[in-house]
Design a protein around this nucleic acid. Structure first.
Length: 298
DNA sequence: ACCGCACCCTGAGCGC
DNA sequence: TGCGCTCAGGGTGCGG
């Protein structure tokens, strides 16, 4: 669900709410591959530890703890971090209003869960002070939680490429040489650059006028430069617009992100291209939908 | 080494 | 109403 801009917004919102707070109790559901660390271990080891920092690497969130351990979180497709009991009524998770602060379910046909602790909440962190409790919901359980001991590293993290907000033509050009895969798949490869997902890959390729099915190796230096530039620009714009609200994600203060209004191709299959009027096409590429304008993107 | 695909899981929306 | 199908912003792991 969330890509770099949405994760970045979650981090910015949560940081002041979590940093400096001491964990009193941790609640978890049963073991599943959602838990890279056994839930029992999370409950035991997180207790009495303090959160010193919250940061982002690609689409991962990292909680630095005062013990020297790190808690690694990934939201997957449907992961939501929800703060319950924030002082501002706007941020509080109200049982009646059924609106979450960080993320809410916005399906028109169904009321979102009234409480954060429904059957899809797999991790809750309570703190020693009176501030809000943190809940990690994840319907599809594609999210991940792992506790890293002091000095321990995670291969997922160490394999990540440079953050996509700082993507350069050089990185793109070098990674694409002699690669037969499609340029879109390369953009989604988190070891090349970290943070781009399906939406921003499609939107970036449109902005750069590059067809998603082009072989990576066929891109010129100039095209790599253009592509790197639009990736950085779109990600920055998306952050400024409050991210993209499609199904689950909303801005941390409860409002919608606005960037989805600027989509040129994503989710616009059959609709006229805003540049040339040609119907936008959708094609499955590497198990993901690729949206593009067959005329503008060569 | 690389690439495409199956798979992990749950829910919404659609046509019949 | 219900069934079966497709789709969904994630990543991993396997076989060719």
């Amino acid at each position: 669900m969330p890509e770099l801009p949405e994760v970045e917004l979650v981090v910015r919102y949560l940081r002041p709410l979590l940093v400096g707070r001491t964990i009193r109790r941790v609640l978890t559901t049963q073991p599943s591959y959602f838990f890279l660390s056994p839930p029992g271990r999370l409950r035991a080891k997180l207790r009495n530890d303090r959160i010193d920092d919250l940061s982002r690497r690609g689409k991962y969130l990292i909680l630095a703890l005062s013990s020297g351990r790190h808690l690694l979180l990934h939201l997957g497709m449907t992961g939501q971090l929800i703060v319950e009991g924030a002082k501002s009524p706007r941020l509080a998770l109200r049982a009646s209003a059924a609106h979450g602060p960080v993320s809410i379910k916005r399906s028109a046909s169904r009321e979102p869960p009234a409480l954060a602790t429904d059957r899809h909440t797999h991790l809750s962190i309570e703190f020693a002070d009176v501030g809000p409790t943190l809940h990690f919901r994840d319907t599809r359980k594609f999210g991940k939680v792992r506790l890293l001991e002091i000095g321990e590293s995670d291969p997922r993290l160490s394999k990540l490429g440079a953050d996509a907000l700082g993507l350069t033509a050089t990185v793109l050009f070098r990674a694409s040489r002699r690669r037969k895969l499609r340029i879109k798949s390369l953009l989604l490869d988190q070891t090349v650059t970290a943070g781009i997902g399906n939406i921003y890959a499609d939107e970036s390729l449109f902005a750069a006028r590059i067809h998603p099915e082009r072989r990576a190796s066929s891109l010129s230096v100039v095209e790599c430069k253009t592509l790197a530039n639009v990736v950085r620009r779109l990600l920055r714009l998306a952050i400024r617009a409050g991210g993209s609200s499609i199904d689950d994600y909303v801005h941390p203060d409860g409002s919608d992100g606005a960037f989805q209004r600027q989509f040129r191709v994503y989710g616009r299959e059959g609709a006229p291209c805003r540049e040339c009027g040609t119907p936008i096409e959708r094609r499955v590429l590497g198990q993901r939908s690729a949206h593009f304008c067959p005329r503008c993107q060569k």
